[in-house]
Computed example of a mutant assay.
Amino acid sequence: MGRKTKMALTVGAAGVAAWAASKVVAKPQPRPRKEALEFEDPVVLSHRGGMSSTPEHTMAAFSNSAELGVHGFAVDIRLTKDEEIVLFHDETADRTTDFSGRISDYTIDELKKADAGYMFEDDNGHFPFRGKGEKIISLRELLTAYPHMLIAINLKDSPDTYEGSLMPSKLWRLLEEMESEERVIVMSAFDEQTDRFNLYAQNRVAIGAGNDEVKKAYASFSSKFGHLYNPRADLFCITEKMGPFPMNSENFINFLSNLNVAVYYTHINDKDTFEKLLISGAAGFITDKPALAMEVIQQNS
C-alpha cells in the first residue's frame, strides 16, 4: 500500500471518527413554537394582495384575496421621508403609480396623492384601476383593517441605507403598539435585518430566514453534518431552486420540519406545482394567484 493511499485512508478514518463523535455530542435545538405559524392546514398568503388580478399592495387587492378565504398576506415594506412604514415593493414609485422618484423622498401624505392603480394592466391591455382611488397604504392601516389575518412582512430597505438602519426598531414599535406580535412573520433577504429586529423582539415574533441562513441550512442538509445545524429562523420562505440547488425535495422539507421550521414556497402559480409541493409536505404558499391556491388545497384536503 502506497504512502498516498495510507494517508487518504487515515484522513478518511479521521473524518468518520469526527462525524461519529459529533453525532454523539451534538444536540440540535428545534425552534420554539410560534403562534403565528400554528396552522393545521397548508397556509395561503396572497403575494402583495394577489397581484395577478388587482394592483399590488392596495386595499382592492387585499379585499379581493380576503374574500377568497386566504390565511393572510405577504407584503413588502419601506420607510417614507417622515419615517412611516408603507407597503411598497420597489425602491422607486415609477413601476406601479403615476409618481416617480424614491419612496424615501416622499412623506406619507405626499404618497397618498399617488394613484396606486395607475400602472396595473389586465390581460386585455386595459388599465381598469386608473383613477379609481387606490392609494398607497401604510402597514398600520393593513394591520387595523385585517386584525385576524397572518401578515408576512418583508423588510426591503437594505441595512446599509438610512431607511434600513431605522426599520427594525420602527417596525418593532409599531407591532408592539398594535399588539400584533403573534400574528406576523418578519423576514428579509438580509439576515442582518432580522437579527437586528430580533434584538428588540426577543423571539416574541416569528422570524423568516434570509439568503445566508437558507444557504447554511441547505449546505448542512446536503452534507453528513446536518445534525450540527441549529436554525436561527422559524420559517423558510423559499423558491423551488436557489441557483443550481433544488429546495423542493421532501427530504429537505422534513429536515427543516424536524427542527420545527415551517417551509413556505413562493412564486408558485400553477396547479401541478402546488399539488407536488403539497405532497412533499410544504406548510404554505405565497402566491400571485390565491384563488388557484385555495382551490388546489381544498381539492387535496
Rank of each mutant, 00 (worst) to 15 (best):
Q29H: 13
T273I: 15
M187V: 03
A60H: 07
F255R: 03
E295F: 01
A233M: 03
K289Y: 08
P30M: 05
H227M: 08
V184Q: 09
L150N: 07
D123Q: 14
K216H: 04
D109A: 13
G101N: 12
F274S: 01
R232N: 10
P55R: 10
L37A: 05
Q202N: 15
P231A: 06
H267V: 14
H57R: 10
A145R: 01
C237Y: 02
F285K: 06
K112M: 10
V263G: 13
G125C: 12
K112S: 14
F73C: 01
E141Y: 11
K113F: 00
E40G: 04
I153G: 06
I238L: 01
M242E: 11
M119H: 05
R130L: 12
P28I: 06
V296P: 03
D234K: 07
F127Q: 10
T54L: 11
F225M: 14
A291S: 01
K81A: 07
T239D: 11
S223K: 14
A291C: 00
K271G: 04
P147A: 00
R140P: 01
A116V: 06
G208C: 03
I185E: 01
S63P: 03
G101L: 05
A282F: 00
E110H: 05
G208A: 06
E213H: 13
I286R: 13
V86E: 03
P231L: 05
A18N: 02
L292E: 01
R173K: 13
